[in-house]
Design a protein around this nucleic acid. Structure first.
Length: 410
RNA sequence: GGGAAGAUUGCCGAGUGGUUAAAGGCGACAGACUGUAAAUCUGUUGACAUACGUCUACGGGGGUUCAAAUCCCUCUCUUCCCA
């Protein structure tokens, strides 16, 4: 616990906070109960959630107690932070089902056994709130003028229009913090930097209601951009999800292998539990040696998010797909009826069915661009019929471009 | 309650009767170069079709016209101004 704050800051888990000295003192000397909020607006968490999750995991390892607060109540409104359009409003059933899925995912990182960590749904109190009481007890502490000065609201207000529904988000999030403070002695909120205004409002609300010695703080984490300025976790298929049903382990692993050189060390610090000293060693690598650091990064992150055996498999598959390895069986596969190959199938249909390419037109285009390969042979004939003569002992290997590969298994 | 402007292909954004699958930018994809990196250069970027070409698309619905993203009516939504 000693030097806890310094450690966090050094690993990159610090953007801004309320009283920094007080926060450092608190984290270094007390067992702090803190909370991070998650929106159950999707069936899976994605890469953007990983920084707060890792922060929670590190804090828990250092003796602090995390509360994972799922926004089963707030999700029914939609948070305007950093968005130009409000989130879609989901049904209660969808929200509840998402919440349970999120809990399962979080438990890979943090213990939520009710003792060392808690999982709480703000729907428990928000859904039954009494409007008049809420206005009287909570609403009176908020100034519209002040709220309109918040960056997230200001932007929306000026350029897109801000609905009353969304405008209330800050009150509800502040109220969450108040509840957690009162019921669980939660004195720290951690979240992405886009949540700053909401979090500070919570701190202020608690101080107004309980007095200035309440000792509550908040801490924001940086929103991670890649060093070429792009948002993290964008792949050709959209966002990178933590669920292997949505983003395959193979794709997940590959994402980290393909990270930009200048991001590797930063990401090792943020997204793995590897010791500082070990990271220091890896940071000595230069040029093409960096692939080693990327392998460590990809392996470790995959191990944490999925499992060690998944990580090993993904690594083997990568070796098979990109040269050295011989474990071709591990390349992502898809199956197709053998009889259809024997009857002969158009290369256009085959690539579309494999999921490597979106449409036949695109396959045609890729063939013209020399990007399509079968069993490592470049294909230039878009009328090619693939039949049993293409079947090898390891099936048929399809490639689209340098990085996308699938194996047909029978 | 009254008035005005707007909704275009993944995003931004041009286009105001035919030459428009729709400029330009971004993003994305491919090739070259490399290290499964970045940068750079080149090309591609609605679908179907070997091809001629066909179909779908400019918020929804209806209409005018030989011909509509472009004109008219109507509905929905958004923004702005007045009260």
């Amino acid at each position: 616990m000693k030097d806890c704050f310094k450690f966090l800051k050094n690993r990159g888990f610090f953007q801004q906070s309320t009283d920094e000295e007080a926060l450092a003192r608190k984290l270094d000397n007390e067992n702090v109960t803190f909370y991070v909020g998650y929106d159950p607006t999707n069936v899976s968490l994605h890469l953007g959630h990983l920084v707060p999750i890792m922060a929670s995991a590190f804090l828990q390892r250092m003796g602090h107690k995390p509360i994972a607060l799922v926004g089963g109540g707030t999700a029914m409104i939609g948070d305007p932070s950093g968005r130009t359009s409000a989130r879609p409003i989901l049904t209660v059933d969808e929200i509840d089902s998402n919440s349970m899925l999120i809990k399962e995912q979080l438990e890979r990182f943090i213990t939520l056994d009710g003792e060392k960590g808690l999982f709480i749904n703000n729907g428990d109190w928000l859904r039954n709130i009494n409007y008049i009481e809420f206005l009287r007890d909570i609403g009176k502490h908020f100034s519209v003028n002040r709220m309109l000065s918040f960056e997230t609201y200001k932007e929306k207000y000026k350029n897109h229009g801000l609905s009353f529904l969304e405008f209330n988000y800050v009150l509800l999030q502040s109220y969450d913090f108040l509840r957690l403070y009162k019921e669980h002695n939660c004195t720290l909120q951690v979240g992405g930097d886009d949540q700053w205004a909401n979090m500070v409002s919570g701190v202020e609300l608690i101080r107004r209601i309980t007095g200035s010695n309440s000792n509550v703080e908040c801490l924001t984490l940086p929103l991670i951009l890649t060093s070429d300025g792009k948002k993290m976790g964008k792949t050709q298929n959209g966002a990178l999800f933590l669920s292997k049903e949505i983003t395959s382990v193979y794709d997940f692993y590959q994402y980290w292998i393909n990270v930009t050189d200048s991001d590797v060390i930063r990401f090792l610090k943020l997204y793995t539990f590897i010791d500082d000293s070990e990271i220091e060693k890896l940071s000595q690598l230069k040029g093409e040696e960096l692939i080693e650091a990327k392998r460590v990064l990809a392996f470790e992150v995959t191990k944490i998010v999925h499992s060690e055996s998944d990580a090993i498999e993904a690594r083997e598959a990568a070796n098979a797909a990109f040269g050295s390895g011989d474990n071709i069986d591990l390349i992502p596969t898809f199956s197709i009826d053998r009889s259809r190959i024997e009857a002969g199938i158009s290369i256009l249909d085959l690539f579309v069915e494999s999921g490597l390419v979106e449409s036949k037109s695109e396959v045609r285009r890729l063939i013209k661009q020399n990007a399509i390969k079968i069993n490592e042979d470049k294909i230039s004939n878009e009328n090619l019929i693939v039949d049993s003569s293409f079947i090898t002992e390891s099936g048929i290997i399809l490639r689209s471009g340098k990085k996308k590969v699938k194996r047909i298994a029978f």
